[in-house]
Computed example of a mutant assay.
Amino acid sequence: MKNTSKKISTEEMIDFSNHFEKSIPLKFKELYLEYNGGIPNKKYIYDYNNENYLEIKVFLSIKYKNGSNPIIEEYISFLNKNSFNNLLPFALDWGGNIFAIDLITERVCLLLLDLSSKIIVNTITDNFSDFIDELEVEESYEE
């Protein structure tokens, strides 16, 4: 991960976690204690539902904004206004669509924001650990 924000402490992670009714996945906590957002080295994940690769532009920071990297809190308020209270946003693609963890099912989904203000939810993986494990350095189409 490059272009990360200032590291957060364990206490800051606990404080952040306490804002949610459901628990945050351990893999998420570990990743964010090591890297507080930033640009991933492995930035592609295959979307089996739509049979194409998705590219992550940036992982959001929990706090300590770094340059133009947005922070999670900015997206939580947007999701709450749109009745997505159980989602934890953590990354963006190049179109401004939001990768988020459903804290009830633990699935990772992509919220596609279209011009009509309608939000389409597309499940990507069953959990955050799978999401991280399935990230690739580049798109690799099998022939």
Rank of each mutant, 00 (worst) to 15 (best):
K2S: 10
K7M: 00
E11K: 10
D15Y: 11
S17R: 06
S17N: 10
S23Q: 01
K27H: 01
K27T: 14
F28W: 13
L31W: 04
L31K: 12
L31S: 04
Y32D: 07
N36S: 03
G37A: 01
P40D: 10
P40R: 00
K42C: 08
Y44L: 01
Y44I: 00
Y46H: 08
N49E: 08
N49D: 06
E51R: 13
E55M: 12
I56M: 02
K57M: 11
K57R: 12
V58N: 14
L60S: 03
S68T: 14
I72L: 05
S77K: 15
K81H: 03
F84M: 07
L88A: 06
F90E: 06
A91L: 06
L92G: 08
W94I: 11
G95T: 07
I98G: 07
I101F: 09
L103M: 11
I104M: 04
R107P: 01
C109S: 13
L111H: 12
K118L: 13
I119R: 13
I119V: 15
V121L: 04
V121I: 15
T125E: 03
N127E: 02
N127Q: 09
S129P: 10
F131G: 05
L135A: 07
E136M: 10
E138G: 09
E138H: 00
E139I: 12
S140M: 04
